[in-house]
Design a protein around this nucleic acid. Structure first.
Length: 590
RNA sequence: GCGCCCUUAGCUCAACCGGAUAGAGCACUCGCCUUCUAAGCGAGCGGUUGCAGGUUCGAGUCCUGCAGGGCGCGCCA
């Protein structure tokens, strides 16, 4: 059973077609005036324009033909020609029952499932994640879950930054600091077979500490830089010592990063790194050359990507630098090729900072020219920055970059405070309380991010995000947990749910909100905009809260009680599902 | 210099291929707990959607110009 909006759209569209008007104009939307109607169609206005008739006249003809529809209690014309539709309690009850019985809570599956790969997160070897990774992770995870829920085959790929010059820098730095490791590396490089267990002593904290130093030194000191480049070349040639040490870097970083991501409710199907496409680069360059796409320019080899009608000249893709090395765009192009060969995605979504927009445009155009993807199969889904209260990208009080871990811990501390303030969870075991605090913290961070359209930047305000009042993650958890508590009580009292019968205004509103789930999901899906789902979750909570305040459940007479209990169960199921799509999980109690 | 994005209530943000009276939250005022979690609900206050034009029966939404802010612009990623 489709949602009410679509069902009504089909009916009104059919009437438009009967009248010889473009059917698609009959589209029905939720009413802008809930005091007047449940749904509306503005099609008569648009149709009038096209056929040069009076819109009210058309609306009247449409209304007459709709009058027989059993779902409708009233069809009214308002203003210049709006068609207002009001549903019978009966049809709302039926729809509520259908949602209640639906394991997908009223959500549909896309007509044509696709293979979709989502590239997000963007972690790098040796670098702990900082706040800049927060949005990529939160938004990417939500889009991944959304697409998967809608029925696509989805892979999330962390696209690990694990290759290149910075690896050479890091290997050199570690060898300088640890003579025993330097000796082992040299020995392995010379062909000896030795136990590499000693590499286990290298921890992420070492890498994090050494990398900035090495990077700075490489900039200032030519000899140091040359050495790092040499090591990089050696790594690319798979010298055993460098390679084994590099593998340690990669492993130790990935374990730590996966733990951090997991704490945020973010997980990847693939940890494909830049290193994985290394071997594809030479043949790819040859292929690009054979296709006549490569142009020599200032000692480098480039692909020009300008198009007719461009408003400005886009820089070319730099494939091979004048020093003969591959650039990051080259790696991105090879990654597109690799994905085509392994997963053959219909769509690749790059969930990366908006500032990379030009870069992706250039790479995508090159990929289309090379035939590594079809026009439109590659999409950059950019997002704005998370700013401090000064309106600039978020920094610590000292002006440094805040590590993601520290931000999560800060939020968790705040969540504990808030729980204590409210006197919540005091009689719970320590472990459960901690679990709740973590869930509250993650919900606070994620909902604060996802309630905004991804493209706009927003201000980080921990006090606001962790508040239990208002449009926040913690509020939503509270609402959901309140329903769980109600359902537990019902179970204790052996009260069971039954057929849904809608009568009260608050019940009507709740059902109309439940029905809007599909609209929110499809909008979020089409626009890659999880905020539509966040908005729905919040509206659903509000609608339930009104219902909860206006309609006693357990004290009602048996038939009403079982109906309202079913509504509560259905609301919880859909709310949990919506939050699940956003990557927010619920505690049992708080 | 060129290009992209942004500017909506005191603050933080929404707004369904252009539609009725531009919505939420916070803050502020008032009312509601002997009854299912009041972390809640109801009511109120708050707007020339940056400015000026244009298209349209109708513009926050589309077009042009201007102002202010952010970002990007080949050998880092």
């Amino acid at each position: 059973m489709s949602d009410l909006k679509r069902g009504l759209s089909e009916a009104v569209e059919a009437v438009f077609a009967e009248l010889g008007l473009p059917a698609e104009l009959g589209r029905v939307t939720a009413s802008d005036r809930p005091d007047l109607a449940d749904f509306q169609s503005n099609g008569a206005l648009a149709a009038a324009k096209r056929v040069g008739k009076n819109p009210r006249e058309i609306a009247t003809l449409v209304a007459e033909r709709l009058a027989g529809d059993a779902r409708l209690e009233a069809v009214e014309i308002a203003g210049p020609g709006f068609i207002n539709l009001k549903l019978t309690d009966r049809s709302l009850s039926d729809r509520a029952q259908a949602i209640a019985d639906d394991p997908r809570q009223g959500a549909e599956i896309v007509a044509q499932p696709r293979r979709v790969l989502i590239d997000f997160g963007g972690p790098n070897v040796a670098k702990p994640m900082h706040v800049g990774h927060l949005r990529a992770s939160i938004i990417g995870e939500a889009i991944k879950r959304l697409y998967r829920f809608r029925g696509d085959s989805v892979l999330g790929d962390a696209h690990f930054g694990d290759w290149g010059y910075q690896m050479g820098l890091l290997i050199g730095a570690v060898m300088d600091e640890r003579p025993e490791i330097a000796r082992l590396v040299d020995s392995l490089n010379a062909g000896a077979s030795e136990d590499t267990a000693a590499f286990g002593a290298v921890a992420l904290t070492d890498l994090d500490r050494l990398y900035p130093q090495a990077a700075a030194k490489g900039k200032a000191d030519t000899d140091y830089r040359d050495r790092a480049r040499k090591i990089t070349a050696g790594l690319q040639d798979r010298l055993p010592g460098y390679y084994a040490l590099w593998q340690r870097f990669r492993d130790v970083t990935q374990v730590a990063l996966e733990r951090d991501f997991h704490a945020l409710g973010v997980d990847f199907d693939l940890w494909k790194g830049e290193s994985d496409v290394e071997d594809l680069i030479d043949p790819m360059v040859a292929d690009l050359d054979a296709k006549g796409l490569l142009v020599d320019d200032q000692g480098a080899r480039i692909i020009r990507v300008v198009r007719e009608g461009d408003k400005r000249e886009l820089p070319p893709l730099l494939v091979v630098s004048s020093e003969g090395s591959a650039m990051y765009g080259t790696t991105d192009l090879a990654t597109i090729l690799d994905r085509k060969q392994t997963f053959d995605p219909n769509l690749v979504i790059y969930c990366v900072d908006q500032r990379q927009a030009d870069h992706f445009e250039i790479v995508f155009r090159a990929a289309y020219l090379a035939g590594y993807a079809q026009e439109g199969q590659l999409e950059h889904v950019g997002f704005g920055t998370m700013n401090g209260t000064d309106g600039k990208p978020f920094k610590t009080r000292e002006g440094g970059v805040l590590k993601l871990n520290d931000m999560i811990e800060m939020t968790r501390v705040k969540a504990r405070e808030r729980l204590h303030e409210a006197g919540l969870g005091e009689n719970l075991a320590e472990t459960e309380f901690e679990d709740i605090a973590s869930k509250v913290a993650v919900a606070a961070l994620k909902f604060a991010d996802l309630q905004n359209f991804r493209g706009t930047s927003y201000v980080f305000d921990l006090d606001r995000f962790t508040s239990f009042e208002g449009k926040t993650g913690p509020y939503l958890l509270y609402q959901a947990v309140r329903v769980k508590s109600l359902l537990r009580r019902a179970a204790d009292e052996a009260v069971s749910s039954g057929p849904i019968t809608v009568t009260e205004p608050a019940e009507r509103e709740l059902v109309l909100t439940l029905d809007a789930f599909e609209t929110a999901l499809s909008e979020a899906y089409d626009k890659k905009a999880p905020n539509a789902v966040a908005e729905h979750a919040y509206r659903l909570s509000q609608a339930f809260s009104k219902f909860y305040a206006a309609c006693p459940i357990l004290q009602a007479e048996p038939k009403v009680r079982s109906s309202r209990l079913a509504l509560a169960q259905t609301t919880l199921a859909q709310l949990e599902r919506a939050l699940g799509v956003l990557g927010i999980t619920l505690p049992e109690r708080m």
